[in-house]
Design a protein around this nucleic acid. Sequence first.
DNA 1: CTGTTAGCGCATTCAT
DNA 2: ATGAATGCGCTAACAG
Lengths: 358, 358
Amino acid sequence: MSERRVTIRQVAAEAGVGLGTVSRVLNGAADVSDCTRQKVEATVQRLGYRPSLRARSLRQSRSMAVAAIVPELVNPVLMEFLRGVERTAEERGYVVLIGETHRSAARESRLVERLVDEGIDGVVLGGPLVARDAELLRDHNVPVVPGAEEAGSTAYSAAMERAQAAATRRMVRRLLELGHRSFVLVIGTLPRWAVIEQYRRARTGAIRTELRRAEAKLEVLSVDMSRVFESCREQLGAHMAGPDHATAVISYSHVLAPGVLSALQRCGVHIPADASFVTFGDSDWAMAHQPALTVVRHDLFAEATWLTARLLDHVEGREEDLVPPAVEAELVERESCGPAPGTRVASSTGSSARRGAP
Amino acid sequence: MSERRVTIRQVAAEAGVGLGTVSRVLNGAADVSDCTRQKVEATVQRLGYRPSLRARSLRQSRSMAVAAIVPELVNPVLMEFLRGVERTAEERGYVVLIGETHRSAARESRLVERLVDEGIDGVVLGGPLVARDAELLRDHNVPVVPGAEEAGSTAYSAAMERAQAAATRRMVRRLLELGHRSFVLVIGTLPRWAVIEQYRRARTGAIRTELRRAEAKLEVLSVDMSRVFESCREQLGAHMAGPDHATAVISYSHVLAPGVLSALQRCGVHIPADASFVTFGDSDWAMAHQPALTVVRHDLFAEATWLTARLLDHVEGREEDLVPPAVEAELVERESCGPAPGTRVASSTGSSARRGAP
DNA sequence: CTGTTAGCGCATTCAT
DNA sequence: ATGAATGCGCTAACAG
């Protein structure tokens, strides 16, 4: 129907009022007479006028858009994160630009530059940024959550790490309690600025500490993320064929789990009879797997929701310093963990069995 | 560092050249002397100047941004779609706005209006749109792929439907060949404008046709998407308890599969001994499941890639009418399908065994 | 080759 | 309460 974009001038002309008046009506300014207001609104309707957000953005230097930067979109766990961002942004009238770095510093830089040039209102991070990009953002006064770890770490990321570490420790202890003494941790090879690097440190640190204390063995296997299945097969095949192979297998990431499970099966390792299995990150599939998978679950959706709300508060000037929510990370025990082969376990104290939907 | 945004004027002033010259250098116009070009570039560097994309957008009425509209982000299959869009958009210098309708008409409308106002360059659809929104887009000359089905359907969606139907038929025939005569199709209850509605029609149509021809029984179970696990348990529990329960279970969607599998297991149904299982949509988890799942796979990533490329070609004026690619949909046979209980099967002709990563 | 002018569509001063 | 002017930062069309 409409040939050319209808502008605010046309509305003004058609309604026989001044240009600014239309603007006032649109923005719900208080001081407009009911008479003119209705006249304008009618004209707006009739002409099918829609204000141009880019003109508005240029004028107000606010774009009502935020960006979510994540390493990759394949990871369902990061999807949860993205969902959380999208949800709260949408609720508050913002759109979200998706930024996938593909774990490439070059792409990340291009992306961040583009976002800055776009005049984005803020960015929420699903993973760490290389220093240069973080600086660029800071130099252009683009708010970022979680905030840069100036002098250590922010209250939020500290809480997050603590939660991760705590759940991880519970997981390891439970495994030790079940008699396991030989562990293998399967981890994806990643560039130095890996997925939510803070988590990584928290997790691996907790595992190492607990295991050292119990004088248990830990082998770390790095698999090639670009060929997870094959790589898992090779690495685990070699390891499990060895004389004293692990009886407890920990998958560092939700995306790794299928590869690890598949490899284990091909090695003829039965879960949980021959070995126990646990992974970070939960999903319906982990629940439906047979046996159902024990996981360390972290509610990234909730986290993203909270972070985004915080970002938008900041953007909108309203600096309510919300207390960080209880960042939840929990051990969900299901069937993939059992006593180490040839072990008799007394009781399963301290286990927090959960089965609810993820 | 930078107090205020540095503009093109400052660069011009600092470099001692005209305003337009800087613009020319920035846009790589041919007719600039090397001398001035270098002078300008140096100044740009020194001042850390970054052109404002919103000003540029306003002027050129092109935003270099496209939107991807999907019903939901939870579905990993739609994620694949989103990945495809993001990938090719990024390659060509566009950013992508994510639009999640949450399967709500109201949200969809808000979203589309916002996108139109934003002056988006185009939108790629991961699901159908309500008529009103499609019109709004059309009225504002926003290109959309897949195109509206004017007078039936576009060449593309026709090809897509054909591919879906063909793979679905192969799947059903294979099941019949294995001796199954009683089927159950588990499907999510959705608003009328469901996920990629075209697929749905293609799939269910193909299933019904094949089954009718073979005089086999089909029961359709609708589960509540908001509580998949519980709903599956109830529905399937009731059905499988009946006297002549199905021996072949088809899950309509990838997100449904975990719920269905879990319910089946709780019913004491062993796969594939007691019943065969197949789902639409593949993933690492489907491969790693025990038994590994037979699936009808459709490469949504490839599809999104192609669609987006086509959209951008259109946006950029270059109207190369690419021939639709061979839209792949294939039956991937794995271990979750076997002969119907009490049946002896001759050979497994016509089966296309595949095991590659998804 | 380069400087100047005129808007893109809007919100925001100012006057009235 | 409202109309008129100013400019957000940029590109395009025009002069020189």
